[in-house]
Design a protein around this nucleic acid. Structure first.
Lengths: 335, 335
DNA sequence: CTGTTAGCGCCTTCAA
DNA sequence: TTGAAGGCGCTAACAG
């Protein structure tokens, strides 16, 4: 069924090489032959075999994208922009999800290596850094997206998480809130660390005290935030506002507050991060800080392609690029 | 950096063939050699080159997934389950998005053919059927997911859309609604046609009349539903309930109603389809009919793998499998 | 301008 | 139990 150069060559009465060259519009091939070959190729529906191309050239024109879970809209949106931009640059995307299971992340890296992808965009779980070490060991070009490892020198593209948290918190403070609950992610996540710092800085500046119990850590797994928050709010407390690590968690908080009959924003204000609303319409417009996913995606691909093209097999250590994308507050109806 | 069988063979002092066989635990290789090779391979970090394997075997252990847009949670969830199940079956997923642009769908198919994927899961746009014809022409195993073409014989896995719409509408009728607005998708989409039929059947059975203007067609593109609905509700009307083609549109409707100051469900009830809430937590629990995405994903992969494995190059026409997945009403706070 | 040769990494004969 | 040869489809280097 599939037509090969060989067949075209046979029907054309010329060599495989000539056909190959003709299809590439090589000017060293006579115009007549070029046209003849092209016409025949179109007629027979020739589609180049990328696998064979890769075998020769060493490049697959494919990148791997490793992320946690499409149920989290943040990752979906990220995947959207990455895939779209990669396609526009001539690259296909193998997408692999980890569900926050380190072993799956490792497997995804092995698959990337085995399938010979040209580069990897890794949105790491961060429970450990094995996968990053593996990528380094195999000298596979890769970029960390959204998170980075303090202790490892790698290229990365992240949002300005510190500023994002700072803006969110300051916004709440300006609205008069003094006791704010921060629903954070696990502390092994670099962005959670940075956002905590931003949160504290804003509180500090306003002369507000942060108790250890004002910060709770939850995973983004379905329902975990709801349970923890439910418990927290049933205790005696003075919170009038919630700052959530992400819009996903903010949505979950919102849902929980509705269950508890707490009015938003009059009784409790909520701010999230990611500004999902600018990409997906949700029933309620959340006040949120945009993490500029689109720009992060674009920069990540750009950087990765640069790495791929400058591929230095000798491994002369190049200073990694660290990119921090700016963020912006976006007002909604939850504050 | 990357270790090959050749290198292993050199270091082992045996032939490439023997190394290959040893790593496959071929019992015709002496136990000592097998162990020696395995040990060396582990030490040097040998990872088989899938590209070369594909070159020989003709299989890539990769499938292509072609869908519209990750911003639509329905597609994200679908992608999640497909990717997850495919991985568990030993297949990688090349995911390509079309943004409802037919040309991109065609390109995605060409890429699938060029990259030699073993099979394709196509969630078609349906503005035309060119991509399906292309897949047929190249005899590439493929399954349509979620939608099908009346006029083409293909394998497909869809939800019971007729029943879904029927259940949703009947639910509204049972709640006492008599004038219902159906926010549908474009009529070239097979599921929109089926849902319209289900809607009308339920209305008919209840002796309720459906005016042509009670059905509006919108795309899922960001904001289109909002504008159309806004206009519709500003006119004089008697609607007390909305049945939306999908939860995505239902969310958008909900958002629009909030803007208009219309209370849900007291002044206007809403039902959607997909039951996204069972996968993602949204601020509000929508009454919805589950389209059982998880099961659809699983069945699609199962069917596709069956097709791949029974690959009949001679193209002896096999009767296509048509699978319809059952649906279920799930109550929320919007009715 | 065109063709021949060689080989990417692997696996499947066939031969020893 | 092991190895040598050939070839998957393509391209790069070298000849003519």
């Amino acid at each position: 069924m599939k037509v090969t150069l060989k067949e075209l060559a046979a029907k054309c009465g010329c060599s495989i090489t000539s056909v190959s060259r003709a299809l590439k519009n090589d000017r060293s091939i006579s115009k007549e032959l070029r046209e003849k070959v092209r016409k025949l190729a179109d007629e027979l529906g020739y589609v180049p075999n990328s696998i064979a191309e890769s075998m020769r050239t060493g490049f697959t024109n494919t990148i791997a994208i490793i992320l946690q879970d499409f149920r989290n809209p943040y990752f979906s949106i990220m995947a959207k922009y990455i895939e779209e931009y990669a396609t526009s640059m001539g690259y296909s995307s193998i997408i692999m999800t980890t569900s926050e299971i380190p072993e799956k992340e490792i497997n995804a890296v092995y698959t990337s290596i085995s399938k010979n992808v040209d580069g990897v965009l890794l949105l790491p779980i961060q429970k450990d850094s094995e996968s990053v070490k593996l990528l380094k060991k195999f000298r596979k070009p890769f970029i960390l997206v959204g998170r980075y490892f303090e202790e490892l020198e790698t290229d990365y593209v992240i949002a300005n998480d510190h500023k994002a948290a700072y803006l969110a918190t300051r916004h709440l403070i300006e609205k008069g809130h003094k006791k704010i609950l921060f629903i954070s992610g696990h502390s092994y996540i670099s962005s959670a660390v940075l956002r905590l710092k931003g949160f504290k800085k804003a509180m500090d500046e306003a002369g507000l005290h942060v108790d250890p119990e004002d910060v709770i850590e939850v995973s983004s797994a379905h329902g975990e935030c709801r349970e923890t928050l439910m418990q927290k709010l049933k205790e005696k407390h003075e919170y009038t506002a919630i700052f959530a690590f992400s819009d996903l968690l903010a949505h979950e908080a919102l849902y929980t507050l509705r269950e508890l009959g707490i009015q938003v924003p009059s009784e409790m204000a909520i701010v999230g991060i990611d500004d999902l609303q600018s990409h997906i319409i949700f029933p309620i417009k959340m006040t949120s800080v945009s993490s500029n996913v689109e720009k992060m995606a674009k920069e990540s691909i750009k950087l990765l392609l640069k790495l791929i093209k400058s591929d230095n097999p000798e491994g002369t250590p190049v200073k990694p690029t660290k990119k921090v994308i700016d963020v912006k507050l976006s007002l909604g109806e939850t504050t």
